[in-house]
């Protein structure tokens, strides 16, 4: 009996052959939450992966290969997957992170834990 197995060397090599890009991001800290807009033109919504672990928000997006019938005349941008991670640190509520993909832009909202937010204490007269 013979079983065909993909050798561990070939799989990562094929993956490495595709370029990976660092997407441009805008990050705004609103105090109660951090909002990250990432430019992911061409990415499929199903292929976007957002994870939050140990204070690091990671973003990975698969882009389908460029299917260009005919001859290329000019190529100014590469086509490949997007990868980027951000060290946000402690004090964020992983369960309430939202990610929304629209017009090639992924908007991630990472709320801070209520416990770390400054609390206003009302003064009562005794």
């Amino acid at each position: 009996m013979t079983t065909e197995t993909v050798s561990p060397e070939t799989a990562p090599a094929e993956k490495a052959a595709r370029a990976t890009f660092r997407p441009n991001v805008d990050i705004t800290d609103f105090g109660t939450e951090v909002v990250i807009h990432a430019d992911l033109p061409g990415a499929r919504r199903d292929g976007i992966d957002v994870t939050f672990e140990d204070g690091v928000l990671s973003l990975a997006a698969d882009v389908p290969p460029r299917d260009v019938p005919g001859t290329a005349i000019r190529r100014e941008y590469g086509v490949g997957d997007y990868r980027r991670s951000f060290r946000l640190g402690e004090g964020f509520d992983a369960s309430r992170i939202t990610a929304d993909y629209r017009d090639g832009v992924l908007t991630m909202k990472v709320p801070r834990l209520a416990a770390v937010l400054p609390r206003k204490i009302s003064v009562t007269a005794g």
């Binding site: 005919g70 001859t71 290329a72 005349i73 000019r74 100014e76 941008y77």
Partner: peptide, 11 residues
Amino acid sequence: PAIDVSETDTL
């Protein structure tokens, strides 16, 4: 904005 230009026989 970055562009890509390609052509076929008709397009």
